[in-house]
């Protein structure tokens, strides 16, 4: 689904990543860990074509990112659900409209029942009409996750999804991600929270990738 082959990325003359190779197979679950500033977010941005590699090759759904037009990139992102630590919403629109954005921008009709079911799933059904600035950190993270999956993506990329929430909420979000993986979604979670990774051990078969010295290594045995 997503493959990096000897990818390097640098900015302003400084090298951030070099010789990075990884392959996300359908239905797999990966954690990407490493210290702050190691390049976890950069790997994710490369994986959804917000950044282009300075060398090497990245394939998204079997197509080289360099061959994608701007419209192709947009279409590809509809197959990828993205969750950020500082999840952004359109503050002037209610939660329901924000969650429906993937449908809105794709100019597709959607079923209101699906939205209600999704809000129930993430525990936000009572906040259907709430404006994003009124949501707590945990609610925003769950809403971001709901928005990421509403369009039925093949891959979920989550960048520090538990960075701004307490431990209980982290476990809840982890459970949602695991459930998505069981539904067949490919999941990549960038996190520096090793406790979360340990907690996942009992729930899912995940591989842990660690970024160190600009490269990705498999961190010990699979959890």
């Amino acid at each position: 689904m997503i493959a990096f082959e000897n990818v390097a990325y640098g900015y302003g003359g400084a090298s951030l990543l070099s010789d990075v190779s990884l392959r996300l197979l359908p239905g797999s679950f990966h954690f990407l860990t490493g210290p702050s500033g190691a390049g976890k977010s950069t790997v994710l941005k490369l994986a959804y074509a917000e950044l282009m590699p300075t060398s090497g090759r990245i394939s998204l759904f079997d197509r080289d990112v360099r061959s994608l037009s701007r419209d192709d990139v947009a279409r590809t992102r509809r197959r990828i659900g993205i969750v950020h630590q500082d999840c952004k919403f359109l503050d002037h629109l209610p939660l329901s409209a924000n969650l429906g954005l993937p449908f809105t921008v794709a100019e597709r009709e959607s079923d209101p029942q699906d939205l209600r079911a999704l809000l129930d799933w993430v525990g936000l059904s009572q906040l259907h009409d709430a404006l994003p600035p009124t949501l707590s950190g945990g609610e925003r993270q769950r809403a971001a996750l709901a928005r990421a999956v509403i369009g039925g993506p093949d891959v979920i990329l989550a960048d520090e999804p538990t960075g701004n929430v307490d431990w209980d909420m982290s476990l809840r979000l982890l459970a949602l991600l695991v459930e998505l993986n069981r539904m067949g979604k490919t999941v990549l979670v960038a996190t520096h929270d090793l406790n979360l990774i340990r907690q996942a051990k009992s729930q899912v078969s995940a591989r842990v990738l660690r970024i160190a010295q600009q490269r990705i290594q498999v961190a010990g045995a699979d959890l």
Partner: peptide, 22 residues
């Protein structure tokens, strides 16, 4: 106050609604 005015649900609508009035 948590509940905002419900403008519309998801799905199709005029594209300019997604941009806040500036």
């Amino acid at each position: 106050m948590r509940a905002g005015a419900s403008r519309r649900g998801r799905g199709q609508g005029p594209a300019d609604e997604i941009v806040p009035p500036s």
